[in-house]
Design a protein around this nucleic acid. Structure first.
Length: 1175
RNA sequence: GGGCGAUUAGCUCAGGUGGCUAGAGCGCAGCUCUGAUAAAGCUGAGGUCCCUGGUUCGAGUCCAGGAUCGCCCA
């Protein structure tokens, strides 16, 4: 045996493990890096995973593409160091530990002790490291674990501190505020991933709120519209969170939105429905106390009028109330049904005629009529008063006057003034402003549009704060800092006017910042979720939540009702509506989350937008659209990066605050810290210095929080926050290489992660690089990115534990081997698109590519061993010995190999890996189904007549495929390489340099096209035979081919191929319309041969069904009656015997057990066979 | 709600800058071959290229709008 025998039913799992062992024992990976000392480096950065979870099949995907490029570049002769990395910090780790120890809140964590908690976190990140390493090794991802970087390492943290310091020195670090999803019940920020877990559909009370414009503004608007009345103008806003209204700081409008100014058209006659409707007027809430007092201490006249005339619906059934506040006034008596005020002029009013007039005017403008009686009239002539009360007033109130001009067409309305002035249903006049699109839906038919305004015309107008009469707030353009308008002019919801509470919404906060509002942010809710002293009095101490008795979960319903009721009383509520929406909940407790303002440290990345885009120009994205699309968009809309987290397990923020001056300093290294301590806290200095020296220093919380010092400015204490763990991983080019100077980072030639990293690692990596770059030379930290899509299950569903559609990579490897899985991924994953993962898909890859490749290899080894061919023999064979047997088809397949090599190299260079696999698959197909199929007989030539050309060609092709596939399927290609390699070749395929490719010569290209023509002719011939119902078994005398095919002079090389494939004796060219024709005349000789082949076919099937080995010899028996047929078969007996390895062909009546009946040339016969047992 | 991507045969997917009578593999049906022997080959059936408009002599491809799915962000 010269080659190791190869099974045609290989166990890839076993074979691959052997190769992994071989690599390990011979340090092949290390050699592939270290032996290229002189080589140009190819820099690859590994994005660090967190090892607190098991690696999944999606990691296999990413690692396949990482490995493939690194291996390819190594083969190109580059030095490719690959440092593994672990992302150890962050909320996901904390959450795992919280689950593990059932810690529900920060209080629980603190009860456990931060030191203890962080110890568990550190352990948690080590939990699956072994499995990660094993999986990585098993799938043949070459990466250096020994020198892996770890983000929680002291040295790593120190470098991250250095970066922060560098950024601070560039004045990019500042303290600000951030809106976070906040769980009031546990007092924690909830991560985005967790928020996504807890969305629930809930029904909330949404409210349409009227915000009154200040008089001055109202005047301006009305002047613009040609209206001259005193009636108030309101902005109508819609909110689903009325509990945030006490923290309202602005109203936002869309500058481009058309707003309508509306007024209500009243029904002329009393409207029974309107009667039941309660008319609410705005009033000054501060008056309620005074009104109550007056009610309790009426004047004698008031007392008399109330008791004798008005009380208890005495007056024709109309209900009057006493001391009713409306606007800034208190009416003595008021009937809402009649819109009638009754005033009794006491002594206090006597001198105030002017005041009374203004007051009456105001009330009239609200549609309220006023009847005024003196004390005397009431006390001495109550009957007159009684009578007069319900008669019309002398002059009708100016109700409706303001409509002049604006409502020209509603003439019927004007007749209102001719009607009894106390007509029921009259209403106060007021104007509402809202999006034109929503007027009908929100206000219904009763309101009329007076005019329209563009949103931009409303900006900067002032309106009255809801709960404070003195305070005026501004209307702002709803533009956030990304320069996008977030106010939506939706036809189905809202009013186009958005209530802005910067403490409770990210958009709100953005708008607050973008509009340069100077007032400090108003936040009326504590972090536990109750109203503080910033809220109006009636809310002080109220919780924003109530418990739903049924579900036992918290909800906002109670507080929203309280606030809406109050607003209703203030006349500021138009209406409420039930609103069903999806709202985030704390997935652990099922209680609602709130979006809440927290202090945060920021990197001012939005100042670097231009630079980001410039750096992005240096990056080649695969797929390309990510550059301008997803990533470019993200950069263009960049907002400042909030880098602090109010958590425990993370890089501690190296910011110390002076307790007196609030000045902040950033410590950039441990030495710098020691410097501070040396003078400011000598005791601690000694301790920390010692710890750093003997490597026991723990820089994590809580220990770092103990480090403080005092200097001439006072005491310095660290801020409590830790760093966003994305900052850790983004710092990797500097921190993992322990660079002295942060700006000295090296740009990676290649990185590769899934597409979700556009907002993650791809971004933070770039952000930190650009932030550190000098303004003259903006640099990206990576050049080429492959951005992979996600893995979905075979139905296109996301893989998740709950769906039970998770695929375990270990099972895949056991079943198929790692390489078939890798090939499947490379072949099926078009960059950026999600990949559907299906076991059947891998099985298909197996059948389509892996097994044909393997079988071709097994075929070679089988016959090479039989013919005692070795790589040495091939290598040392005299050239003429090979050339003697060399056939055109050999030159063709070698030309195809070169062609494929060239094309595959190009595709690899372009990161078009699946295209490369297609080319390789096509070549393997040509090799196996054209070259081997056509040349099989060359391998079983009699001994002494060995076709060295055939062996040499096949070996070259197999080794060629090994090279081409080495980056994708490093294990199987190595297996084959190890068996076939020439004695003086490198010890591993992965130490072989990628060959320089010569362009095919014209001759070679012609050979390739001649073969395609031959293939075409063969296919046409088969098709024609089928049409003519002439089996290939039946030889034919001639194939006639259209003359145009003769133009390729190389076609002649493949004439014999065409003839044998189609079982034809002769090929001729002729002028003809059809491309291919047959001479279908069947001579007796042809018939005889055809019958013989038919018989052979049956015998072979019988052999196979009888379980005979291909090399077994037999005795063949034939039982037939027809002498004519017998004669024909006898004439072919030598041919038949040779084909079926029969030593004897006997015509007999008695057949052995192995027998079969068939029909030949219309005659029935039976055949039987007997195995000859060797003595 | 916004951004990005996808939608082509039963399934998985190809189809730069418009020229298509729309392709491949698998599956299916029929046939063939068999000295790689539970492998292989050929032929065939199978398409409203998501929908609606538009540009054009011509649209799977370009433009606009919409639908569905996925990812990211709110």
């Amino acid at each position: 045996m010269f080659y190791k025998p190869v099974s045609t039913k290989p166990n890839f799992d076993e074979l691959e493990k052997e190769i992994i062992q071989f690599w390990k024992e011979n340090s092949i990976f290390e050699k592939s890096v270290s032996e290229l000392t002189e080589a140009k480096p190819f820099v690859f950065y590994e994005g660090p995973p967190t090892a607190n979870g098991r690696p999944g099949v999606h990691h296999v995907l990413a690692r396949t593409f990482k490995d493939l490029v690194c291996r390819y570049q190594t083969m190109l002769g580059k030095k490719v160091e690959r440092k593994a990395g672990w992302d150890e910090h962050g909320l996901p780790v904390e959450i795992e530990v919280q689950k593990q120890f059932n810690l529900k809140s920060k209080a629980d964590i603190e009860a456990m002790g931060i030191a203890e908690f962080n110890k568990h976190c550190a352990e948690s990140t080590q939990k699956y490291i072994a499995e990660w390493e094993q999986l990585t090794e098993r799938m043949a991802y070459w990466v250096d674990f020994k020198n892996a970087y770890r983000t929680s390492d002291n040295q790593y943290i120190e470098k991250v501190w250095g970066i922060l310091k560098a950024l601070q020195q560039k004045d990019l670090l500042y303290k600000g505020h951030k809106i976070v999803p906040w769980a009031c019940d546990s007092g924690t920020v909830v991560s985005q991933a967790e928020v996504a877990l807890g969305y629930k559909d809930v029904i909330d009370e949404s409210a349409y709120i009227k915000f009154q414009l200040t008089n001055q503004v109202a005047e301006q608007i009305k002047n613009k519209l040609g209206l001259n009345d005193q009636n108030p103008v309101y902005m109508l806003a819609w909110t689903t969170t009325p509990w945030t209204l006490p923290s309202n700081m602005a109203l936002a409008i869309g500058p481009e939105i058309e707003y309508a100014v509306c007024v209500k058209q009243e029904p002329l006659k009393a409207n029974p429905e309107a009667l039941s409707e309660r008319e609410v007027f705005d009033y000054n809430p501060q008056l309620t106390d005074r009104a109550r007092e007056s009610r309790q201490q009426p004047t004698p006249a008031e007392e008399k009028l109330w008791e004798e005339v008005l009380r208890n619906k005495q007056c024709k059934g109309y209900k009057f109330t006493r001391q009713k506040p409306i606007g800034n006034y208190i009416l003595d008596f008021y009937c809402s049904e009649l819109l009638l005020a009754v005033e009794v002029d006491g002594d206090s009013h006597a001198q105030n005629q002017e005041y009374d007039e203004i007051r009456t005017q105001y009330l009239n403008s609200c549609g309220i009529q006023v009847k005024r009686y003196s004390n005397e009239q009431v006390l001495s002539n109550i009957e007159y008063v009684k009578k007069d009360l319900l008669t019309p007033v002398d002059e009708p109130p100016p109700c409706g006057v303001p409509f002049t001009g604006a409502l020209k067409n509603t003439s019927s309305f004007f007749s209102g003034s001719e009607n009894p002035p106390l007509s029921r249903g009259a209403r106060g006049v007021k104007y509402l402003i809202l999006s034109q699109k929503r007027v009908k839906a929100v206000l219904g038919d009763e309101w009329q549009i007076v005019s329209t305004l563009k949103g931009s015309e409303l900006a900067n107008y002032k309106y009255q704060a809801l709960f404070e009469t003195e305070k005026h707030l501004s209307i702002i353009k709803g533009i956030n800092t990304k320069n996008e308008c977030f106010v939506i002019d939706d036809e189905n919801s809202g009013t186009g006017i958005v209530h802005i509470a910067p403490a409770f919404g990210a958009d709100d906060l953005e708008a607050y910042k973008a509009n340069g509002i100077e007032t400090p942010i108003l936040n009326a809710v504590t972090q536990e979720g109750s109203f503080n002293e910033q809220a109006p009095k009636f809310l002080h101490g109220e919780s924003i939540f109530n418990d739903n008795k049924k579900t036992e979960q918290k909800e906002f319903i109670r507080i929203n009702k309280i606030i809406c009721k109050k607003l209703d009383e203030l006349g500021l509520l138009l209406k409420t509506e039930k609103y069903e929406h999806s709202y985030p909940h704390n997935w652990r407790t099922n209680n609602p989350l709130i979006y809440y303002l927290r202090p945060s440290w920021y990197i001012a990345t939005s100042r670097l937008r231009e630079q980001f885009l410039e750096a992005n120009e240096q990056i080649n994205w695969h797929p390309e659209h990510v550059k301008e699309g997803r990533f470019g968009q993200w950069l263009a809309g960049n907002i400042d990066w909030s880098i602090s987290r109010e958590r425990y397990w993370g890089t501690p923020l190296p910011i110390w605050i002076n307790q007196k001056t609030q000045e902040a300093i950033v410590i950039g290294s441990y030495n710098e810290l020691l410097d501070k301590l040396q003078n400011g806290n000598p005791q601690l200095y000694a301790k920390v210095k010692g710890q750093i020296e003997d490597k026991t220093f723990n820089v994590h919380k809580p220990y770092i929080d103990e480090i403080s010092w005092t200097d001439e400015k006072g005491e310095w204490k660290r801020v409590p926050e830790v760093l966003d763990c994305w900052f850790d991983s983004g710092s990797m080019p500097i921190a993992s290489n322990n660079l002295e100077n942060p700006t000295d980072f090296v740009t990676a030639d290649y990185i590769c992660e899934a597409v979700d990293q556009t907002r993650g690692w791809f971004y933070t990596l770039l952000a930190i690089a650009v932030a550190l770059s000098s303004s003259e030379k903006i640099r990206s930290s990576y050049k080429e990115v492959v951005c992979l899509g996600h893995i979905l299950d075979k139905d296109g569903q996301k893989m998740s534990k709950s769906k039970g559609n998770i695929v375990n990579p270990w099972e895949l490897f056991a079943k198929f081997g790692a390489d078939p899985v890798r090939w499947f991924m490379v072949a099926n994953c078009s960059a950026g698109n999600p990949i559907r993962f299906d076991m059947d898909g891998i099985a298909e890859v197996m059948r389509r590519f892996i097994l044909p490749f393997w079988n071709t290899y097994a075929f070679y080894v089988l016959y090479a061993n039989l013919d005692q061919i070795s790589d040495e023999k091939l290598q040392n064979a005299p050239a003429e010995l090979i050339e003697r047997h060399l056939q055109p088809i050999d030159s063709w397949i070698i030309a195809r190999l070169n062609q494929t090599h060239k094309a595959v190299t190009e595709e690899y260079n372009n990161f078009e890996f699946s295209k490369a696999t297609q080319l390789i698959e096509k070549f393997v197909d040509d090799l196996s189904n054209v070259w081997v199929r056509a040349g099989r007989s060359r391998f079983w030539g009699s001994s002494g007549n060995i076709d060295l050309a055939a062996y040499s060609t096949l070996q070259a092709c197999l080794l060629g495929i090994c090279q081409l596939t080495a980056p994708c399927i490093p294990l199987l290609s190595e297996t084959i390489y190890q068996n076939l390699k020439l004695t003086n070749s490198p010890e591993s395929l992965h130490l072989v340099l990628w060959p320089r490719i010569e362009e095919n010569t014209e001759e070679e290209n012609n050979l390739i096209s001649a073969m395609s023509i031959a293939q075409e002719i063969i296919n046409l011939g088969r098709s024609l035979r089928q049409e003519l119902k002439l089996k290939i078994r039946q030889p034919l005398s001639q194939i006639i081919i259209a003359k145009e095919y003769a133009e390729n002079k190389y076609l002649g090389y493949f004439e014999s191929l065409i003839l044998s494939e189609l079982n034809i004796k002769q090929l001729v060219f002729a002028e003809q319309a059809e491309k291919v024709l047959f001479n279908t005349e069947i001579t007796p000789e042809l018939l005889a041969e055809g019958l013989a082949r038919e018989l052979i076919h049956t015998v072979q099937n019988l052999r196979k069904n009888s379980g005979l080995e291909v090399s077994d010899r037999i005795k063949l028996y034939i039982n037939l009656q027809d002498n004519n047929l017998k004669a024909i078969l006898e004439s072919q007996s030598e041919y038949i015997k040779a084909e079926v390895l029969a030593q004897d062909l006997l015509f007999a009546d008695n057949l052995p057990e192995n027998k079969k009946a068939l029909k030949l040339n219309g005659q029935s016969l039976e055949i039987g066979l007997e195995k000859i047992v060797k003595q």
